[in-house]
Nucleic acid binder design. Structure first.
Length: 589
DNA sequence: GCCGTTTTCGGCCCGACTGTTTTCAGTCG
């Protein structure tokens, strides 16, 4: 999405925060936050919409918001924001990010103690002034201290792949607690978001049980944030040494569905559902759907949706991006079981840990029909990329291994580098011998957007390139994505019959969900590959499938959800009408 | 400030936990 959209969204959020601080109508403040959120969801360039005078077509953007946006586009400022910033220091907005500090307390601390920054806040915490304020005390001060520490440690969200194993372990431990049943992960993890802010776990338990108490005493808990009869929050450490909050909620059996729905979110999806309930004269909470005092649904999610006149909606698309409006004609999203093979794996021929045979056996154990061995090309010297001669030999080795391992087809393939000028790291005759070719960017991450985009477009023109690997090159919380023109790339992908990869490794998840949806809408083919560097990595596939689902992808949008024969004909279709006789003859001594 | 399948005015999601209260405001998710 264009940077301008994000920039304006940030300013609108800031105005919303400043309105909260100055104690103005909270619904008005919320309107700014809602508009900011909508701008982040808009795929097209906001400046273009302004030119077309269609800004008010954006949800939550009315006449006033549209004026603000136009003003910002013209002058780089919004007067409303400047006025508010004249009333309170805008740095107070940062203090509101601290867990435990909302607009009221921030204002009280500023008015009474002149606190404007983190440093000021640390000072009044240390010298005890904060705890002396009316309505505050030592407990409040302690809570804010923890909040500041948490913010600095957990400033970034935790990658899904880091939180997932933690959640799985905790879920099993909770299952072992007496009385706990139907233990399930909810929250952004259930929705398959690439990063999670915290882990939400839900279970059924008898009234008055001590499940929360025992949960807070699990060995990996480093601190207890809150613990009540039905709800507990604790902090655990991730393997990256960061804090991660885990919330457990214990609910009665008849409310499990409503609670799962509530706890899964997204918040915006829930609000939409509650609005539908209100229009019908009912009330929806985590305890159920109520007509007056009478519960009319709540045991399962399906029940609640059905009563609201909706089919069950998959968690991955509960983002209020059209899933409620289109609930009755939603696509049937791809599932892990639809995946028939992995088309991106490395072996110890380049930088992987296992042999071709070991990878093949592991893939076969997952029930796959085929596996593409895609080691690095010569340019990846640090990854032991294969020279041209080694690659010819490697193709023979893969074919040989393919004969040894039964019941799975090995595809002799490569992950070939896209070079600086858009050409490829192997000659066409070598690529032509491969069954499947992924082309990837591994260099030039800071290139100008137009140049980088042209490199990818050039690679897609090559008839032997069947897919573009991890298109934007991002590494979650370690490397920014290449600033590509994704709209042009998905269009070209559809036109040239080149698949775009959803790299399933949790550190990449590249394409990301929004770009997947762009590709689906543009009719481009997708491929989900794990980029496995070991047999264990083959199991990362589910992260890629979640991302595909978040992008509304169906099995038919995904190349490796097709049978081998269909995969082969798709590849040869792009290679075109070239008859075997036209193909370059290779010479080997 | 936005919005409309009973609305162009009058709403705007709902409940748990905490701390400082002494009946509740603030914060969070």
């Amino acid at each position: 999405m264009p940077d301008k959209n994000l920039e304006i969204a940030r300013v609108l959020d800031e105005i919303g925060d400043l309105l909260e601080l100055t104690g103005q109508n909270k619904f008005r403040a919320n309107a700014y936050h809602n508009a900011a959120r909508s701008l982040r969801d808009v795929q097209s360039d906001i400046a273009e919409l302004a030119r077309q005078d269609t800004l008010t077509d954006i949800p939550n953007v009315g006449a006033s918001m549209a004026d603000h946006i136009k003003e910002y586009l013209e002058t780089g400022k919004i007067r409303r924001r400047e006025e508010l910033a004249g009333q309170v220091p805008p740095t107070l907005v940062d203090l509101m990010q601290i867990p435990g500090l909302g607009p009221r307390k921030v204002m009280a601390i500023w008015k009474n103690l002149g606190v404007k920054s983190m440093e000021d806040l640390a000072r009044v915490l240390d010298n005890g002034e904060l705890a002396q304020l009316p309505g505050m005390g030592e407990k409040t001060a302690e809570r804010i201290r923890h909040g500041m520490a948490f913010l600095s440690k957990a400033a970034e969200r935790v990658p899904l792949g880091v939180a997932w194993p933690i959640a799985r372990t905790l879920t099993r431990q909770i299952e072992d607690l007496a009385g706990a049943r139907q233990v399930q992960c909810a929250g952004s993890m259930r929705r398959g978001l690439e990063t999670v802010g915290d882990v939400d776990i839900l279970c059924v338990g008898p009234e008055g049980s001590d499940i929360v108490d025992r949960f807070t005493k699990l060995p990996q808990v480093s601190r207890v944030v809150a613990a009540g009869g039905t709800k507990g929050s604790v902090i655990v450490q991730t393997r990256l040494g960061r804090d991660l909050q885990v919330d457990l909620r214990v609910v009665p059996k008849q409310s499990f569905g409503a609670a799962l729905l509530y706890f899964t979110g997204s918040k915006q999806h829930n609000i939409k559902l509650r609005e539908i309930a209100i229009k019908k004269g009912w009330k929806l909470s985590e305890y159920g759907l109520f007509d007056g005092d009478r519960m009319i649904a709540g045991k399962t999610e399906e029940q609640v949706y059905r009563k609201l006149g909706l089919p069950w909606i998959p968690p991955e698309i509960r983002e209020d991006t059209g899933e409620i409006e289109h609930a009755h004609d939603l696509p049937k999203l791809i599932e892990l079981d639809d995946v028939r093979g992995d088309l991106h794996v490395h072996t110890n021929a380049s930088d992987g840990r296992n042999t071709i045979e070991e990878m093949a056996l592991a893939a076969k154990a997952l029930g796959y029909e085929y596996l593409a061995i895609t080691d690095h090309s010569k340019g990846q010297a640090q990854a032991n990329g294969l020279s041209i001669d080694r690659m010819w030999q490697h193709i023979d080795d893969i074919r040989h291994a393919g004969k040894q391992v039964k019941d799975i087809t090995l595809l002799a393939s490569t992950e070939v580098d896209i070079l600086g000028d858009g050409s490829l790291d192997y000659p066409d005759d070598l690529l032509a011998e491969c069954d499947f070719v992924i082309a990837s960017l591994h260099s030039g991450f800071t290139q100008a957007p137009d140049l980088a985009t042209k490199r990818v477009l050039a690679a897609m023109e090559n008839p032997y390139v069947s897919a573009i690997g991890h298109p934007t090159g991002r590494l979650l919380s370690r490397r920014e994505p290449i600033d590509l023109d994704l709209e042009r790339i998905v269009r070209a992908a559809a036109e040239t019959a080149t698949a775009l990869e959803i790299n399933a490794h949790w550190e990449r998840l590249d394409l990301k969900d929004q770009h997947v949806r762009m590709a689906v809408d543009a009719g481009a083919m997708l491929v989900i590959g794990t980029d496995a560097h070991s047999t264990d990595d083959l199991e990362l596939m589910h992260y890629g499938v979640s991302t595909a689902r978040r992008g509304w992808a169906q099995a038919r949008n995904v190349l490796n959800a097709r049978p081998l024969s269909a995969l082969k004909s798709w590849v040869s279709k792009k290679r075109g009408a070239r008859k075997p006789a036209d193909r370059p003859i290779r010479c080997r001594q």
